[in-house]
Nucleic acid binder design. Structure first.
Lengths: 208, 208
DNA sequence: GTATTTTAACTAATCATATTAGTTTTGTCA
DNA sequence: TGACAAAACTAATATGATTAGTTAAAATAC
């Protein structure tokens, strides 16, 4: 009968903490209610369903991460902006593995826009438009970065990497590969084609 | 009372088909039993638990994919081998979204080695050793490729990409970026340092 | 070919969890 | 103060995983 002062925020933070401790799939209403000091059915005063809660957790995570990225990018531009954005995302994923898992697993079919993807997208588009990279190619670049960063974070979380070689170094090197890729695109645009081995020689079907 | 002739293979194939149709998280013993024409408890004659089934599905998927990669690489070497391996993995993920999800979600904490990761690893190591790329760097390269390919496949599955620009082209371009990255490593080794913008200028903390 | 043992199906029961219905209490606001 | 809405509760239902105990089919032993 005592009245907890719960709001969406507190609930999502508790859910996020649980997800980080247990993993998303083990996030249950029982556990969440216990953590909040209420009985499971009471959660339905705040949340529509467990599935919906996971969806909101995803949106909450993206929003938080979006803010962190924005903050990290004040006064930074160019390659360095991309580099920092990637690092912030990776760090966030390391600190909040469960929430990040939710962010990766649940797509934003519901209205919740994944704003942070949007922010990362802004950065990449801006960087590309400052160079000689078409908008279509910027879209490719964006997809490539998202795939790499999210994929890496998920694999790292699942301990898919042996530990003897520093994981962080691998991540950073990959980011540099991709940044170099953008430079290639740029050069290919300026001087029609680059010298050297960077252009796919024979068997690459179709790349922008 | 009639006796279905079930074995692990048939069960995993049915489970895989269900996972592909419904997604892994909706793969239930009820649905699986119905598909196999038996009652749910009978499944326990073949499988230890639902969680364990998912684990076996993961291993089964990796094995299947491993074979496909091996077949695709007969008589192919160099960059083209990497390119093909990436494509085979991507195609597999497109054809078997549910199983691939299981492969990405469930880590191989149990004994089941993810052999196909091992096979991809072989390819990358072999390619690197044929060049001037150290083994430590080959490890980085392997992680980077896995992250990119798995990440891309998962995002594509979750429809995280807008549809108006061909997804496949994005994927291929990313592969070329990464292959170019390997070439860079190689060059950096040969002639100590490359000219141009590929080396991170100021703020990149630590990359191999 | 019959008896025995094992295997794989079954039914019935249990447990956990999400969810709904209906009730009570608490805080807010006229 | 008194009515109302929100948020907690208890009790009940549903679904799905899992266990116990049973039976029948197949394989093996004799």
């Amino acid at each position: 009968m005592p009245r907890m002062n719960l709001d969406k925020r507190k609930i999502l933070e508790a859910a996020g903490a649980l997800a980080n401790e247990l993993s998303v799939k083990k996030l249950s209403l029982n556990a969440l209610a216990a953590r909040l000091g209420i009985k499971p059915p009471s959660l339905y005063n705040h949340v529509e369903s467990l599935d919906r809660l996971r969806g909101e957790l995803m949106a909450y995570g993206w929003e938080t991460l979006g803010n962190e990225v924005s903050n990290a990018l004040i006064g930074v531009s160019g390659d360095e902006a991309i580099r920092r954005a990637c690092h912030v995302i990776y760090d966030y994923a390391s600190r909040n593995p469960g929430v990040f898992e939710a962010m990766a697993y649940y797509n934003s079919e519901d209205g919740e826009g994944n704003s942070p993807a949007d922010r990362l997208s802004d950065i990449v588009y801006r960087l590309c438009s400052a160079r000689n990279v078409s908008e279509a190619q910027a879209t490719h670049v964006l997809r490539i970065f998202r795939s790499y960063v999210e994929g890496f974070a998920l694999l790292a979380r699942h301990r898919s990497f042996s530990r003897d070689i520093p994981v962080r170094e691998s991540f950073d090197l990959g980011v540099e590969f991709l940044i170099a890729g953008i430079h290639q695109l740029e050069n290919a645009h300026c001087s029609q084609l680059k010298n050297g081995a960077e252009q796919p020689p024979e068997g690459s079907e179709n790349h922008a």
